[in-house]
Computed example of a mutant assay.
Amino acid sequence: MPRIHPLLLFLPISTVLTAAEPAKNTEPKKEKPFTPGGIYRQGDMQRPRPTVITPPSENTPPSDAIVLFDGKDLSKFSRKPRRDDKDQSDVPNWKIESGYAEITPKGGDIDTRDKFGSCQIHLEWATPSEVKGSSQGRGNSGVLIHGWGEVQVLDSFENDTYPDGQAGAIYSKYPPLVNASRKPGEWQSYDIICECAKLDDKGTVLQPARMTVIHNGVIVQHAAELEAKVQEFGFALQDHHNPTRYRNIWVRPLHRYDENAK
């Protein structure tokens, strides 16, 4: 019969049994699931950090934005004169006043000199405060995104017209989900998010181009699919013979997930 150490006689039975039991095998720690893409697991501290930017304020755009018009000049745009214009210069002749640019008679469309990939386009616009005309004759202009289509600019406050031609519409394609228009003369904002189509090496579309439009802080187009295949594009502000005003125009690239990976 084995001898018991005298000190063990004074310990609880459960403690004596625990001390005598062999150590149990611990199971290996389970790995966390992968995040979409299958490269990084959930909570992976080795995952690259997103680019740090300064967000916009009332008077300044985001720090990663390309400013196209800050209220001073339209040098980032070129004019498209009509054939019958005496002035064939490509320098925009819209009126610049009090921080905004206003379409002038025979001013013509103005086009960005640069091209962009997937991006966020921000601009603010105002139709005339004095209401003249109806339907398409009130404050008509547009953001003509080359290869994509037109985001309509129009006085759509208590002004009926065909749905795919009102403010916030992707012209002749998608009406806005809601009418978020402000009164004539009030400043309004567009944020237009263009996500280029994903193509394979042969140019076959793997994922269609998608456009989201935010009008005055309200989503009016949500990932609308378009047939655009362009990977770089510019855009124009349309002269539709109405004195529409624009200000605070900037573009920023759409950053990719894990774009800072080494």
Rank of each mutant, 00 (worst) to 15 (best):
D44T: 04
A65P: 08
I103K: 03
D239Q: 04
T204W: 03
P176Q: 03
S135N: 06
A261K: 03
R41V: 09
R252P: 03
H146Q: 10
R83M: 14
V91H: 12
P33F: 14
E21T: 13
L68C: 01
A228P: 06
C119L: 09
L123C: 10
R49E: 14
I219E: 01
G139A: 02
P56W: 07
L254G: 08
T54W: 07
A223L: 01
P33D: 12
P176V: 02
P6N: 05
G99P: 00
P176F: 02
Y171I: 03
D160Y: 10
K198V: 14
S129H: 12
I121M: 01
I192C: 00
I121F: 02
R210G: 00
M211I: 03
P55S: 09
K32A: 11
A228Y: 11
I219Q: 03
M211Q: 01
I219A: 00
Y190W: 13
V131A: 06
E58W: 09
K86L: 07
E27M: 15
D258M: 02
Y174W: 12
L11S: 07
V151P: 08
L206F: 06
T244N: 06
P50M: 14
A19K: 05
S98I: 05
C119H: 13
T112N: 10
T26G: 09
C196M: 13
Q120H: 05
R245N: 08
P12F: 12
C119T: 03
K106P: 09
R41H: 12
L7A: 07
A19Q: 06
K202P: 00
S172Q: 14
G142L: 04
K173V: 15
P56L: 05
R113K: 14
R256G: 02
S141P: 14
V91K: 13
R210Q: 06
R47S: 15
S98P: 08
P92G: 15
S98Y: 13
C196L: 11
G168I: 00
F116H: 02
P243N: 13
P253H: 11
R247L: 10
K183Q: 10
G108Y: 13
E124V: 15
E31H: 08
A224D: 00
R256C: 03
K115E: 15
A224G: 01
V52A: 13
T60D: 02
Y40V: 07
K229V: 04
A23Y: 03
K95F: 11
L237Q: 07
Y162G: 00
A101I: 07
G137R: 08
K30I: 02
G137N: 12
E232F: 10
Y174F: 15
I13W: 05
Y174M: 10
A224P: 00
L199D: 03
G149P: 12
W187N: 01
E124I: 14
S135L: 04
P2S: 10
K95R: 15
L226N: 01
G43F: 07
K24I: 14
E227D: 11
K24A: 14
W187Q: 00
H240R: 11
K229P: 02
K29C: 12
N179T: 06
T204E: 07
V16D: 00
P48F: 14
K183S: 12
T15K: 09
V67Q: 01
N248V: 10
E232S: 15
